[in-house]
Design a protein around this nucleic acid. Structure first.
Ligand SMILES: [Zn+2]
Ligand SMILES: [Zn+2]
Ligand SMILES: [Zn+2]
Ligand SMILES: [Zn+2]
Lengths: 170, 170
DNA sequence: CAATACATGATATGAAATAACATGACAAGT
DNA sequence: ACTTGTCATGTTATTTCATATCATGTATTG
């Protein structure tokens, strides 16, 4: 294992998710990227974990743990909550999937293999979710944290609003 | 009702929460400020609502709905979940209380009467919560949103880490 | 082939949130 | 005074999200 296989710094910050795109390629690329990181880092992308990741990549939007569980059941995997939550834990721990706190739901990472602190745009109408980059620690919040002596380890940034499609329709 | 009684713009952005302070005064001031806004805006700060607000101001940290409910029960109010959730809805709607999505819990606003988009610092060790200001729509995220055609209506910004006290102890 | 670590399966329970319906308080409008 | 409408509260039941725990299986690895 090449232990220096740290995620590369962010290069593009395009908020994949609302635009039209070649989704099949998008899924395959992401999956390949995750497989690559797993093999270089000795992580075990087991069948359940892989299936959950594939589902989330396919959907390209946030799914609740029980929605995932339903699909797992349909595919013959275990059907009890821990099955889904354990797979999700693994995927979240390793940055392949993010949890959307606002929705208590999960979405596949759009920039796997890159070290990033994600920010999300969540459409309140159609539930579409796009991932962008954030740098909250560099702005007002970072200053407040330093002033208060608070050590930021992780940030949740979620914007709620209307996606382009839903804005148009209204 | 003086309908021009919009919240004043933010003046101070001190992240109240971690520092020592005269807490009794802090509670009284906040409560007075909320009462003022309720009377000018014709909002009804009923006993349950007021009690919940007082509890959250007293505690000065995030409480779950069921913790609140326990306290309500102890004070002789209704003891079923909707009692707490309804009071919380009212308080959140009107900006007197904020929900911490990360914790599924609620905290009294530190800057009531000011229009603000709050950001929170949450200590993962002691659960202390401090409220600061954020301007997420002005930074990287705002740019991404504009680029994507996404209309931000509201943002959740929550930083997780170690508060000064817990950093010291470690 | 142990011994170990890790992953999965299944049962049970806990915690957060809401749906639906009934009752009560109060302020118009008649 | 009485009806009507609105808003708040109370209660029951249910749904949704999440975890603790124990048993079983399946890889490595010494
Ligand atoms: Zn895609
Ligand atoms: Zn990501
Ligand atoms: Zn205080
Ligand atoms: Zn606030």
């Amino acid at each position: 294992m090449t232990s220096d296989a740290r995620p590369a710094p962010v290069k593009d910050s395009a908020p994949v998710g609302f635009q039209e795109h070649d989704h099949q390629t998008c899924v395959e690329t992401a999956l390949a990227s995750v497989e690559a990181r797993c093999s270089t880092e000795g992580l075990r992308l087991t069948p359940v974990r892989r299936k959950v990741l594939e589902m989330l990549l396919q959907e390209h939007r946030a799914l609740g743990a029980y929605a995932i569980l339903d699909r797992l059941r349909a595919e013959g995997f275990g059907s009890q909550p821990p099955v889904a939550y354990r797979a999700l834990d693994f995927l979240v721990q390793n940055g392949f999937v993010h949890k959307i706190e606002r929705l208590n739901a999960f979405v596949a990472c759009s920039h796997p293999g890159q070290s990033h602190s994600p920010a999300f745009m969540i459409c309140r109408k159609c539930d579409a979710v796009a991932e962008a980059q954030s740098a909250p620690a560099k702005g007002v919040l970072g200053a407040a944290a330093r002033a208060a002596g608070f050590e930021i380890e992780r940030t949740v940034v979620e914007a709620e609003g209307l996606c382009p499609d839903c804005t148009e329709k209204a």
